[in-house]
Amino acid sequence: MSIAPAKILASLSINGSVVECAFNPNKTLLEVLREDVGLTGTKHGCEMGHCGACTVIVDDLPVLSCLTLAVESIGHEIRTIEGVARDGVLHPVQRALAESGGAQCGYCTPGIIMSAVALLEQNPAPTREDVAQGLSGNLCRCTGYTKIIEAVENASAELRSAR
């Protein structure tokens, strides 16, 4: 029994697959991903749009899933941290972060990776300042950002050399 409004049935396009799920229409994309779809890789640090931990990519743009209603995402392409590695192969941003120690507690990491992936897709050759700017909406309390920025720079170089 719940006081929440009746659920709606919707199809969401998540990580290249169509996922049919039922959820209360007042739920955020963050809540639906975590609670109704079971994709707990997307984290929450404030649910007020302050920290960036819940960042996902919607139609190639980084989006704060805690400020997005799930119903707004119907008909759009949603990408989450679970869809970044393909066929068991890490994305260069993921690999660079793992290798450089850019993930300490790891809680902000999925959001950071989504912001970084979106940044590199839009700007394949970012300067260090571009990277810092691109990640400025993602708070991290462990690393001091240094290794994260370096990892994104390394991933960017790798992606360009592979092109």
Binding site: R34, E35, G38, L39, T40, G41, T42, K43, H44, T80, I81, E82, V84, A85, L90, Q94, R95, L97, A98, E99, G101, A103, G106, Y107, T109, P110, I113
Partner: peptide
């Protein structure tokens, strides 16, 4: 040796389960 941390992979893939991820 500057080796990657043993939990690095679970953390960069979103696979690490924190307390609130437990259902």
């Amino acid at each position: 040796k500057a080796l990657p941390k043993t939990d690095a992979w679970s953390k960069v893939t979103g696979a690490a389960l924190y307390a609130d991820d437990i259902v």
